[in-house]
């Protein structure tokens, strides 16, 4: 066990964990930020997606030691305080979620895409968002909502 300071949603937080602990479990079980989900634990589904310095990252395979040098971690709770991020608004507008379990990860991944590419083409959206899995099959609406958020929908 060691003590670390991490910057999460613009706050510094003291956490205690073994160095083998992945960021996901710190975020969820220590800090109680439950929007970030566990599903595969091997980096294959994207349910655990957070941003590290604005870049979409899988927290289930990110060791805690990789984020202790002042990197800015953002979880779904920090994306906006009132669901007002354009991606979140588009998600409601398009009625994307079904069970909802994958959706924090989808939203963070989509926001990560728009951070680096504010108006992606349909092909770029499909390519990028194919990293994230949705068992309920909400992909058609996800693609539409990303276009809505980017303002590229017709």
């Amino acid at each position: 066990m060691a003590k670390y300071t991490i910057n999460i949603n613009d706050e510094n937080q003291e956490v205690e964990a073994s160095e083998k602990t992945h960021l996901l479990w710190i975020v969820r079980e220590q800090l109680g930020l439950m929007g970030t989900k566990y599903s595969c634990g091997i980096g294959a589904c994207g349910a655990c997606t957070v941003h590290i310095d604005g870049k979409s990252t899988r927290s289930c395979i990110t060791p805690i030691t990789a984020v202790i040098d002042g990197q800015k971690i953002t979880t779904i709770e920090g994306l906006s305080s009132d669901s007002s991020h354009p991606v979140q608004k588009a998600w409601v507008e398009a009625q994307v979620p079904q069970c909802g379990y994958c959706q924090s990860g989808q939203i963070m991944h989509a926001a990560g895409l728009l951070n680096q590419n504010p108006s992606p083409s349909k092909e770029e959206i499909v390519k990028y968002m194919s990293a994230n899995l949705c068992r309920c099959g909400t992909y058609m609406r996800i693609a539409k909502a990303v276009e809505m958020a980017a303002g590229t929908d017709s």
Partner: peptide
């Protein structure tokens, strides 16, 4: 609009896991 969707876009919908 579905009643559960607002909570499923900001991470507050509570699953047992949470």
């Amino acid at each position: 609009p579905r009643t559960d969707i607002p909570y499923k876009v900001n991470g507050t919908a509570q699953f047992a896991m949470d």
